[in-house]
Computed example of a mutant assay.
Amino acid sequence: MNRDPSTLHRILVGLTGWGDHPDLYPTAQARKNKLRTYSAHFPIVEVDSSFYAIQPEKNYSKWIADTPPDFSFVIKAYQGMTGHSRGDHPFASLDEMFEAFKRSIQPVIQAGKLKAVLFQYPPWFECTRIHVNALRYAREKMGELPVALEFRHRSWFAPPMRNKTLAFMEREGWIHSICDEPQAGPGCVPTVLHATNRRLTLVRFHGRNASGWNHTGDETWRNVRYLYHYSKEELLEWKEKLQLLQQTTDEICLIFNNNSGGHAAANAKQMMRLLGIENQGLVHGQLDLFQL
């Protein structure tokens, strides 16, 4: 049965960052302005440089100018805001840090291009009262801005806590960032197909490299952890999952992060084809997943 076009739910597909995807930039001209080229392929991108340092406003202003009017950004929260830095940051207080971050992204907000701020917490961020309070603090400091939440410790979704975690996210107004990742110990989470925000849900594809997920000991961990190429069959698994999510959320953003070996762009393009989404970045019109 065809649905009224006014009720169609959007699916946007993009990547983490725009710099490290060589397949998208085969010519010198394409490499000259990577974000402009990127935005001809995809309508959304995750900004990860904001995790390592609060970016100057001029950077965001340039990125806005380099992208089409309906392009949007998922901006990753600064590492001090999620506890990754373990208190080692250049700010006098948490309040000052949050305010500095919010000021930095004002150009994106004013341009109407902010999809969400992504708070991805570290693997040691377990389900404890102290950490629940930290989530409440972060949500309060971000005010009315759309914020997405991604856990990296499975205690949040262990059977005794799963429903409580999801209910908490709904009450507090968190957008669920659902993970596709290997199940390789406590420092990862299962795929929980539950939208906590009617407006938006994120799905982030980290790959399924179970043997490399817990690689530690040197600075090559990132090159190992996200080294994975999704098969067609694995991507097709998500078609049914997305159908379920579409019943409870108006928009879904799929972000591919499996780029240790340069696989993210190819898998994202493949997913678009499987979903019947053509030239998403160029056309900027969206096809519903099941209007095929």
Score class of each variant (00 low, 15 high):
residue 33 N to V: 01
residue 49 S to P: 06
residue 141 K to T: 07
residue 53 A to H: 15
residue 191 T to N: 12
residue 33 N to T: 02
residue 97 M to T: 03
residue 179 C to N: 14
residue 13 V to E: 02
residue 218 D to P: 02
residue 21 H to A: 02
residue 167 A to N: 09
residue 118 L to C: 02
residue 140 E to L: 03
residue 3 R to M: 10
residue 218 D to F: 05
residue 12 L to M: 06
residue 146 P to A: 11
residue 53 A to C: 02
residue 187 G to A: 09
residue 46 E to N: 08
residue 193 L to D: 04
residue 161 M to R: 15
residue 23 D to E: 15
residue 43 P to S: 13
residue 242 L to V: 04
residue 206 H to F: 14
residue 281 G to A: 07
residue 291 Q to K: 15
residue 228 Y to G: 05
residue 255 I to W: 05
residue 63 W to M: 11
residue 134 A to G: 03
residue 56 P to Q: 11
residue 190 P to D: 12
residue 53 A to N: 11
residue 120 Q to V: 00
residue 123 P to A: 03
residue 59 N to H: 09
residue 101 F to P: 10
residue 127 C to W: 08
residue 183 Q to F: 10
residue 150 E to M: 04
residue 145 L to D: 08
residue 196 T to F: 07
residue 95 D to C: 05
residue 252 I to K: 08
residue 134 A to D: 13
residue 190 P to H: 05
residue 4 D to P: 01
residue 49 S to F: 06
residue 208 R to W: 06
residue 161 M to P: 00
residue 232 K to R: 15
residue 244 L to K: 14
residue 203 V to E: 00
residue 122 P to V: 08
residue 181 E to N: 01
residue 189 V to T: 14
residue 176 H to V: 01
residue 94 L to G: 13
residue 140 E to I: 00
residue 174 W to A: 04
residue 196 T to N: 03
residue 273 R to I: 05
residue 9 H to N: 13
residue 21 H to V: 00
residue 259 N to E: 11
residue 23 D to M: 10
residue 261 G to S: 11
residue 82 T to R: 05
residue 120 Q to K: 08
residue 73 F to H: 02
residue 193 L to Y: 03
residue 180 D to E: 13
residue 156 W to S: 02
residue 41 H to K: 11
residue 118 L to G: 00
residue 28 A to C: 01
residue 99 E to H: 14
residue 243 Q to I: 08
residue 82 T to D: 06
residue 119 F to N: 03
residue 198 R to W: 06
residue 27 T to H: 07
residue 269 K to E: 13
residue 40 A to N: 13
residue 36 R to C: 04
residue 258 N to Q: 02
residue 163 N to M: 05
residue 3 R to K: 12
residue 176 H to R: 09
residue 200 L to T: 01
residue 140 E to G: 01
residue 140 E to R: 14
residue 21 H to K: 09
residue 243 Q to S: 14
residue 83 G to D: 07
residue 32 K to V: 00
residue 277 I to D: 06
residue 190 P to A: 02
residue 239 K to E: 10
residue 292 L to A: 11
residue 160 P to L: 06
residue 137 Y to L: 12
residue 237 E to A: 07
residue 122 P to K: 12
residue 217 G to D: 08
residue 194 H to T: 05
residue 155 S to K: 08
residue 190 P to N: 05
residue 247 Q to E: 15
residue 99 E to K: 13
residue 234 E to A: 09
residue 129 R to P: 04
residue 192 V to C: 09
residue 30 A to N: 04
residue 114 L to D: 02
residue 69 P to V: 00
residue 155 S to Q: 09
residue 283 V to C: 13
residue 286 Q to R: 13
residue 2 N to V: 09
residue 102 K to W: 06
residue 75 I to V: 12
residue 30 A to W: 00
residue 213 W to H: 06
residue 55 Q to K: 15
residue 286 Q to G: 08
residue 85 S to L: 13
residue 215 H to V: 01
